[in-house]
C-alpha cells in the first residue's frame, strides 16, 4: 500500500516536472526552428501557441480509440505506413492531433510490434506536416535501442535520454541504504 502510494507520488511529480519543462522549452525555444520530442502524450501549455514545435510518441496502447473494424486497419499497418489523423478523446487536456505509425515490420510478431502513436498540436501545420514528422521518426529507428525490451518502438534519442537519467539516478543499493537510514 505504502509502495503503491510512493509510486503514484513519483509519477505525479514526474508528470509535473515534464509539464513544467515542456512549458519552459516552448517559451524559450519556440521561436527557433527546433523541435521537442516528448516520450509519451503531450503535456504543458502547448495549446497557447499557434504552431508549437512539439511531438509526442506513445509506445503503449492501453487505450483503444477505435471500434474493431477501424482498429483492424490500424493493426494491419505495414512498416512505414501511418493512419489518418484523429483527435484522441477521453483525457482531461486540450485537444491534439494524433496518428498511428508502424516503425518496423511486424511479420510473425504481435500486432503492436513497431507501432507507435504520434501526437502533435491541433493546428493546420500538423495536418500539413504529418508525413514529414512521420519520416523524422522513421529515420530515428537507427541506431537500434537494444537491449531495451521495447526496442521496436523506442527510438534511440529517447533511449539515450533514459540512459543519461539512469546514470544520474542513485543505485538501488544507495537507495536501500538511505531508506534504511530514514526508517531507523
Amino acid at each position: 500500500m505504502l509502495v503503491e502510494r510512493a509510486k503514484n507520488k513519483i509519477s505525479d511529480v514526474r508528470a509535473d516536472i515534464e509539464r513544467e519543462i515542456t512549458s519552459r522549452w516552448l517559451s524559450d525555444f519556440q521561436s527557433r526552428n527546433e523541435w521537442l520530442l516528448v516520450d509519451g502524450s503531450l503535456s504543458g501549455d502547448y495549446h497557447k501557441y499557434d504552431s508549437p514545435n512539439i511531438v509526442g510518441v506513445i509506445k503503449s496502447h492501453q487505450t483503444q480509440y477505435f471500434l474493431w473494424e477501424d482498429q483492424q486497419k490500424i493493426l494491419n499497418l505495414k512498416a512505414r505506413e501511418r493512419s489518418g489523423i484523429f483527435i484522441p478523446k477521453g483525457r482531461n487536456r486540450p485537444d491534439v492531433y494524433s496518428w498511428y505509425l508502424r516503425l518496423r515490420p511486424n511479420d510473425g510478431r504481435d500486432v503492436y510490434f513497431g507501432l507507435v502513436r504520434v501526437e502533435a498540436a491541433k493546428c493546420r501545420r500538423t495536418l500539413d506536416m504529418a508525413d514529414e514528422i512521420s519520416r523524422w521518426l522513421l529515420a530515428e529507428r537507427s541506431p537500434l535501442s537494444m537491449p531495451d525490451a521495447r526496442w521496436d518502438r523506442l527510438i534511440y534519442p529517447i533511449h539515450d535520454c533514459e540512459l543519461y537519467l539512469k546514470s544520474t539516478a542513485p543505485s538501488h543499493t544507495s537507495l536501500d541504504s538511505l531508506m534504511t537510514g530514514l526508517i531507523a
Binding site: A139, E140, R141, S142, P143, L144, M146, P147, Y156, P157, D160
Partner: peptide
C-alpha cells in the same frame, strides 16, 4: 551496442546508411 546484429538490423542491412542520432 550489444551485438553487431543490432547494428545490422538498425541500418536495415545498408552499410551506407547514416543514423541521425
Amino acid at each position: 551496442l550489444g551485438s553487431a546484429m543490432h547494428d545490422y538490423i538498425g541500418s536495415e542491412g545498408d552499410p551506407g546508411s547514416e543514423a541521425p542520432t
